[in-house]
Design a protein around this nucleic acid. Structure first.
Length: 744
DNA sequence: TCTGCTGCACTTTTT
DNA sequence: GTGCAGCAGA
């Protein structure tokens, strides 16, 4: 597609000036954000200010005013859900199904670009996208020759390091010496390079590669870059505060043409940037005006979602952050409406907290609030369990959002590996995953044999296995099992041609013995797994071919539950709640160490604290009518009862918007509670420094001598909440839970 | 090759 | 309390 093909779209004449219905219910700022079509534009959209509406209307506006054809707009989102919604809403405004749109997630759009020029990344048109299991398995293989101490440097940790490099757009050769040093005894970069080589050999790429390869391609192939730059006359980016460095580079390459002003519009909210731990760079949004000279900025500050107390509390809290562009949410509603203040409740312990929330939810439910309009938002997944138990006892229907998703379940991944192998017999990772599931007596030793033979013949594992079988190089039970495995796959291949992918899938899972494996399994989960497998086969019917299905799964690891259900209370993490809204929001666990999370403070410092505060802001602004915050005096963990103190965020909520209830345990008392906290905490006013061990155990100070049943004697270097950093006599430094060590 | 034991460490999660 | 990884023994 080039500009020469461009002609005004058919809708232009009737729809330009007179027919702008779609702009009529917007406020001034929203209209500004939509009608400022040319030049770089940053739309700072506070929570609940109609961001999605602006984005979709802007998209439609560009089309309806004839500024571009549908395929000349690049519209990028982060999640599949967001892109689906955007597509639906654009279609609704236009009244037609618009095709050939470049609308999708960063990864989906990159996949599309990479499929057009796979050779630029050393891949074939048939390349596979690995899931996280495959990635990890591959990395473990690659790590082997280095004999890394996997206790100290576990593979998932190294995977994280590699992913962060990819997030920053760093190929192995771009990783500097300085950055290499800190992981895997200085071999991280070398392992990264080997990992990339293995990926290429397998004709595969992982998720980070999708962005990385395409960005590299655009950087090194000016003709390809020029093609896309000419194609995309307008660029729209959602959730800009969540972009990482590669995504930023990718956008900048596409948006910036020599001597031309680019029409890039980024929408986001710096106050809702909560994904730095997976590479998001809040600096991208903070720096927008420098990156795109001449940029205009529109602030959307009128909030139509929440009451003034909720907005006031959220605003007061977020004002404690320093790294922000500054924005003040105002209510867009009638200001005189009576509204409830944000309620902060202190309770004795985490179990009472769960009870209190369930009781409150129950009574609000009886007052006529739908459970579908209530949510409990926790900081971390482990907090959900206490609520689950209590909700079950109370008999309130609930659903947990997050957790293990459909396509991440082991049985689904196994089944998908079978299907991948069926689709592409050269998919070695799929082969390795299922060759011994169900058990066929193929352990690491046999697998090694298959590897060696395949490598010497330069064929994939599956073909190598066939070859070894035909030459009689395999014996006994193993040969028997492999024979039936190979013939099952081969006969499924011909079935696939004749009967289609659904029948083929059913047949393969049966003939390979995979379904029998679960039927013979007497564990309580087995029936559920069989149900899931049935559902997987059903999902196949939504797609025309096996290839289409697999590509979709690789990019969209979600599965909507089609069973329509009764209204349920939602239980999820704060991260999971971003972008959602509820009438009533329960926010438990506002305690130091839990929220803000100790881990974040430990390795994120001030920046980490600000991100936690943004998370708190996100939590409060999810509520339309009621936000109820809780904190407990002690919390049950795997080690026992753990004392905890009210979160510093509670002090940052402006009094005029808050009601404080401290059911029986005044905040002061919980702070002063004898022997629970050493004076250090009370004196410096900050809740850091030394901290007691669980259940009123001793508190530790740096420099103290301690002993550990396994590691022997050592000296405390650092005290972080429940953890101690200790250097032992053997010279090892460890981070341990304080309950495992004793003072000498 | 498979099993069961021990030891250890424990956010957030999308694509 | 749970889940995983590594190892020893059958």
């Amino acid at each position: 597609m080039t500009i020469s093909e461009y002609s005004p779209p058919p809708y232009s004449s009737e729809n330009t000036e007179e027919n702008k219905d779609y702009l009529s219910h917007l406020n001034t700022e929203q209209r500004n954000a939509i009608e400022t079509t040319d030049g770089p534009l940053l739309v700072l959209a506070g929570a609940g200010t109609g961001k999605t509406r602006v984005l979709t209307t802007r998209f439609a506006h560009i089309l309806l005013t004839g500024r571009a054809k549908p395929w000349q707009i690049l519209a990028v989102t982060f999640t599949n859900k967001a892109s689906r919604e955007m597509r639906e809403r654009v279609n609704a405004i236009l009244g037609t199904e618009t095709e050939r749109l470049w609308l999708g997630t960063f990864h989906a759009l990159c996949t599309r670009m990479l499929r057009q020029h796979p050779e630029c990344a050393g891949l074939t048109h048939n390349f596979t996208i690995l899931d996280t299991d495959d990635q990890l398995r591959l990395l473990r293989q690659v790590m082997e020759p280095w004999h890394i101490d996997t206790k100290r440097w576990p593979a998932p940790g190294l995977m994280g390091v590699i992913q962060r490099w990819k997030d920053r757009g760093l190929t192995p050769s771009a990783v500097t010496d300085a950055e290499d040093c800190d992981f895997a005894a200085g071999h991280a970069r070398a392992i990264y390079a080997a990992y990339q080589t293995r990926l290429r050999e397998l004709d595969a790429c992982d998720f980070g590669d999708l962005m990385l390869h395409v960005t590299e391609m655009l950087r090194t192939h000016p003709e390809i870059l020029a093609h896309y730059q000419r194609l995309f006359r307008y660029i729209l980016v959602d959730e800009y505060q969540d972009t990482n460095t590669v995504q930023y580079l990718w956008l900048r390459l596409l948006a910036r043409r020599q001597g031309e002003v680019s029409n890039i519009c980024c929408v986001g909210d710096d106050d809702q940037s909560i994904y730095s731990w997976r590479g998001a760079e809040i600096a991208n949004i903070l720096r927008f005006e420098q990156d795109f000279p001449g940029a205009q900025v529109v602030r959307l500050e009128r909030n139509y979602r929440s009451t003034r107390h909720i907005l006031g509390a959220a605003a007061g809290l977020i004002a404690h952050n320093t790294e922000r562009l500054g924005k003040t949410l105002r209510t867009g509603r009638d200001d005189n409406q009576p509204a409830a203040k944000v309620v902060v409740t202190g309770v004795e312990d985490s179990e009472i907290e769960a009870l209190a929330i369930c009781t409150e939810a129950n009574s609000l439910h009886r007052q006529g609030h739908s459970l579908a309009e209530m949510a409990i938002l926790v900081r971390a997944g482990f907090q959900t369990r206490a609520f689950e138990e209590r909700l079950m006892q109370t008999g309130l229907p609930y659903r947990i959002i997050g957790g293990t998703r459909f396509y991440e379940r082991a049985e689904i991944r196994d089944a998908l590996a079978y299907l991948r192998l069926l689709h592409n017999p050269a998919d070695n990772l799929a082969f390795e995953r299922i060759i011994n599931v169900p058990k066929r007596g193929i352990g690491p030793a046999s697998l090694q044999k298959l590897h060696t033979a395949s490598r010497s013949e330069q064929v994939p594992l599956f073909a190598g296995t066939e070859m070894m079988l035909s030459r009689g190089e395999l014996k006994g039970k193993i040969a028997e099992h492999l024979n039936s495995f190979v013939s099952a796959l081969l006969s499924t291949q011909s079935l696939l041609q004749r009967e289609g992918h659904v029948q083929a899938a059913e047949y393969l899972l049966e003939a390979s013995g995979y379904l029998d494996m679960w039927r013979n399994d007497r564990s309580p989960e087995a029936p559920g797994r069989l149900e899931n497998l049935k559902e997987l086969v059903r999902a196949l019917t939504d797609f025309g071919t096996l290839g289409e299905f697999l590509e979709h799964i690789a990019l969209v690891m979600e599965h909507d539950d089609k069973t329509a259900s009764e209204a349920k209370l939602s239980l999820m993490t704060l991260h999971g709640a971003k972008g959602l809204e509820f009438d009533i929001v329960f926010l438990p666990g506002w305690e130091e160490g839990v929220f803000p999370s100790q881990r974040t403070l430990d390795d994120g410092g001030q920046k980490g604290l600000e991100e936690e505060r943004r998370l708190a802001y996100v939590g409060i602004t999810r509520a339309r009518l009621h936000a109820l915050i809780y904190h407990a005096g002690r919390r049950r963990t795997y080690t026992g009862w753990q004392p905890s103190m009210p979160s510093r965020f509670l002090d940052e909520l402006p009094e005029e918007h808050v009601t404080r209830k401290n059911d029986g345990i005044p905040r002061q008392k919980s702070l002063r509670d004898e022997s629970l906290f050493s004076q250090g905490i009370m004196n410096n006013g900050h809740r850091q420094g030394s901290f007691s061990a669980p259940s009123g155990g001793p508190s530790f100070q740096p420099g103290e001598q301690v002993t550990h049943p396994r590691f022997g004697n050592g000296i405390v270097l650092n005290v972080e909440h429940t953890h101690l950093e200790i250097v032992f006599e053997n010279g090892q430094t460890k981070r341990l839970l304080s309950s495992f060590v004793k003072k000498i």
